[in-house]
């Protein structure tokens, strides 16, 4: 959720299940963070999380279905940036995602996106059905 009073600017974009369009939104959010003087480290972390979050919504949520869309809302202040990504997929249970660092999963080529978002962002939250992801980065946080 994004409450307007916490932020200075708020944006809303609906894109098709197209990773190139996801990249465009990513670039807009990064440019905004640069305008608000977020640190390079904040930008690195957020870019990584946006990539994982948007790709997950398009590939695993909407299964690349061109008839489905991804809604991305983002809001920024000098203190923090928050992004909400909503897909039209069937949803998933976070508990069903295997631990990619477990020895038996170490060689599996997928399943690391959520873990990276958790490590690099200050907040990562999935809605109950798993179709809405909220991520947040505070300015200057490690």
């Amino acid at each position: 959720m994004i409450s307007a009073e916490e932020f200075d600017e708020l944006f809303d974009e609906i894109i098709p299940s197209d990773t190139a369009r996801g990249q465009e939104v990513q670039e807009r959010i990064i440019a905004l963070m640069e305008k608000y003087k977020f640190t390079e480290r904040d930008i690195f972390s957020t870019r990584l999380a946006l990539e994982e979050g948007i790709i997950n919504a398009i590939k695993h949520g909407n299964r690349m279905d061109q008839n489905k869309v991804v809604q991305i809302r983002w809001a920024i202040s000098s203190e923090k940036v928050r992004v909400v990504i909503k897909d039209q997929g069937p949803g998933f249970d976070l508990c069903d995602v295997p631990d990619p660092t477990a020895l038996e999963n170490l060689e599996r080529p997928c399943g690391r996106g959520i873990m990276l978002m958790k490590a690099f962002m200050d907040l990562i939250e999935y809605s109950e059905r798993g179709t809405i992801l909220t991520i947040e980065k505070k300015q200057g946080s490690e």
Binding site: F44, R47, E51, E107, P109, C110, G111, R112, L116
Partner: peptide, 17 residues
Amino acid sequence: VEYLSSAALGKLITMDK
């Protein structure tokens, strides 16, 4: 390389195999 996503890690794992 300045940025790398988990999908890229997947390719590296497959390459290693």
